[in-house]
Design a protein around this nucleic acid. Structure first.
Lengths: 229, 229
DNA sequence: ATTACTACTAAACGAGTAC
DNA sequence: TGTACTCGTTTAGTAGTAA
């Protein structure tokens, strides 16, 4: 089944549900369904046949219409769309923000901060992974990316608490779970220190991103930041 | 715009929303969108053009992708589907039950009961119309219709309180708002008395249904009973 | 009344490609 | 890189009609 077909079918399921076929066996003539769908009787008939083959509805044909009931599998499809829409419409934040930046070599300070045990423990606890001892530095190039990054500040983040040891104070770190180049799970971290400006991203991950993704300075990297309300 | 087109577009809107385009301007390449849609880059491009023409998205093209934001009109479309699904999935009852029956002439007792002032006042108050002084009697023919009618008992109804006068007791009446032959608003009423069995429907409406719909004994009538939780 | 087949028409798709 | 045009191919839609 192609995606286009799938969506026609989900639309048909929705119309059948509006006739109550998700709660009870409803009598539906192909002519009536056709009217609701804005299509011909023949097409409505074909849709019902497809839905039946797909196992999304149960159907029996009588002399004056079909008795149709949406099956468990069909209900699941409607529920999926509902859940997705519910999340999108009820949540104040976008589900994700995608940023792109160019790899560059930093001063190696990332490793120093990430190495601090009080940070490490929290990374493991709150992000679910032990970070590789180094950060991947990305420079944002476009206005879009810089704007998108600044919008992130308003969205909820995983907060890593600061602390102080005998020498100095280590500040709070805001983390955003992220997917790097559609492949590797990691996190964007901010405010570790203020050496870099808003056009720089620092990424941590359980593995060495440069090795894992075969990255060199100057390569473009996509970071899909996941907002977790 | 045909309905098939409309549904492709709503599907596309949903995917764009999953990229956050309903909350912010998102950078989306046609190639990336194509992948999410399960279609070709060319088709994705066409969809975006159509959505823009429709006024559902705002778009500006940059050298490395489109900046896309779902417009108010587009959000409304998503909201419509969401509201519809929300109602269907969160409600324990089907939105409506459609019954078909054959017109026959009753004993004229309907007029007597409906004429009672204590009933009339409640009909006006709770159903929103003053019933024509007579009921349309329908005989259910198929097993499906009789089964569907019996299911109605479990669904919420508008309840008209009983009363007693000097002579006798008048019982409670359950009403279900209904649309007769897709045209006239009225109500299915039950338990006015027990003269008729489960295979008989009594319908009231603000007008004389026989005249309004030009009905004769033996005509088939469709009654779409609306469940109002 | 219905459903749904066949044969045809209309529309959507996507490969190639220009920009 | 991108987007989006043309145009041949594929797919969906419908009219007519049988069952």
């Amino acid at each position: 089944m192609t995606d286009a077909q799938k969506w026609r079918q989900i639309f048909t399921l929705l119309k059948l549900a509006e006739m109550g076929a998700h709660k009870r066996t409803a009598k539906v003539s192909t002519e009536y369904l056709a009217e609701k769908l804005g299509t011909s009787q023949q097409t409505a008939s074909r849709y019902l046949i497809e839905l039946e083959r797909e196992g999304w509805i149960e159907r029996s044909i009588t002399h004056d219409g079909c008795l149709v009931r949406i099956d468990a599998a069909g209900t699941v499809e409607l529920q999926k769309i509902y859940n997705s829409l519910k999340f999108l419409m009820e949540t104040a934040y976008p589900p994700s923000v995608t940023l792109e930046g160019i790899v560059f070599t930093g001063l190696g300070e990332g490793a120093y901060y990430i190495g601090k045990d009080r940070y490490r423990k929290q990374f493991i606890e709150k992000l679910g992974f032990e970070p590789y001892s180094g950060t991947l530095n990305l420079r944002l190039s476009s206005d879009y990316d810089i704007k998108a990054r600044s919008e992130l500040e308003a969205y909820p983040a995983v907060e890593i608490e600061g602390f102080r040891n005998e020498d100095r104070t280590f500040g709070i770190v805001k983390c955003y779970p992220a997917l790097v180049n559609n492949k590797v799970k990691g996190a964007l971290i901010t405010a570790l220190r203020s050496h870099y400006d808003v056009s720089v991203l620092e990424i941590i991950a359980p593995v060495c991103l440069r090795k894992q993704l075969n990255l060199k300075d100057g390569n473009k990297v996509k970071v899909e930041v996941l907002i977790v309300p």
